[in-house]
Nucleic acid binder design. Sequence first.
DNA 1: CACATATAGTTAGCATCATAACTAAATACG
DNA 2: CGTATTTAGTTATGATGCTAACTATATGTG
Lengths: 153, 153
Amino acid sequence: MFFLKDLPTRQMIDGYAATYDHVDPDQTNAALHLLRDASLLIRRIEKYLAQHDLSQTQFLILMILHRDKTRDHHLAAEIAQKMDVSKPVLSTAMKSLLRKGLIAYGDKIDDARAKPVQITPKGAAALERLLPDYFRILQSDPGDAGQDTKERP
Amino acid sequence: MFFLKDLPTRQMIDGYAATYDHVDPDQTNAALHLLRDASLLIRRIEKYLAQHDLSQTQFLILMILHRDKTRDHHLAAEIAQKMDVSKPVLSTAMKSLLRKGLIAYGDKIDDARAKPVQITPKGAAALERLLPDYFRILQSDPGDAGQDTKERP
DNA sequence: CACATATAGTTAGCATCATAACTAAATACG
DNA sequence: CGTATTTAGTTATGATGCTAACTATATGTG
């Protein structure tokens, strides 16, 4: 994602509010800050994951497979629903995860079209290595610049 | 951008907090909601802009050129700084805006490398047509599904 | 002045996203 | 049953993003 780092000043927003009566300066300001903060945070997450050779999509697939241990398999279409992405994106991301051995096809189920997948022990281990710093980044202040990826002594 | 629509439950987050002591469930929960809300909002904005044949980057370039009227030109490198994107992205987006006639090169300045650009009257008009609904989307609740782009009677 | 370094912008190559079109299997229904 | 529709997943195509490498100009230093 990408959004303005330099948000419009309050004065500019008030200017727009004067032009368009439906514009509420506080709401607009809050929305712009939401977008900027999320944008900066996502950037850091993506950078961190990229250093470990995963896209955010791949990471989230692992998270979904890992977090729901009440079931031994999941379907791509289902994962796509839980995430905010289209089916082809899942298809590609899962192909990559399969190649890396982080997920694997599970036992065939009744529906012959379906390809149930599971996280592998290797995948779970990789994810678990990433989680501590992932949570650190999530909890970091979006404002202060990135020293997220530095090793901690 | 893309992020989980189905966030982990509070229970799952508490599970992670129990595993990793540096995880604060409230902060983590807040960050995840931030990312999700922004993700949904950005999706709607991109969809709206795409219907009017602009990418978000192109739109933001127009916004930057339009909002700062204290100067008659801007440089790409400067715009890239205000936004959260790399120079080549600016280069591509500006090429597209030039083709559409929404921006134009301004008067040459002292530095022969620089290519100062301005928003054209056509670009300003296009932007101004988009702004009312843009602000409506910004102010809308990220939760309720998209009926943003419907025509208003 | 000459040569090293920095900066403005573009081009090249690669990854990821989206929509649309496709294959194959499942379901629905006359 | 047989045909139509739906659903799981992949493939094709196009847009956009990033980093790295490039051209050209500017600046800094001996």
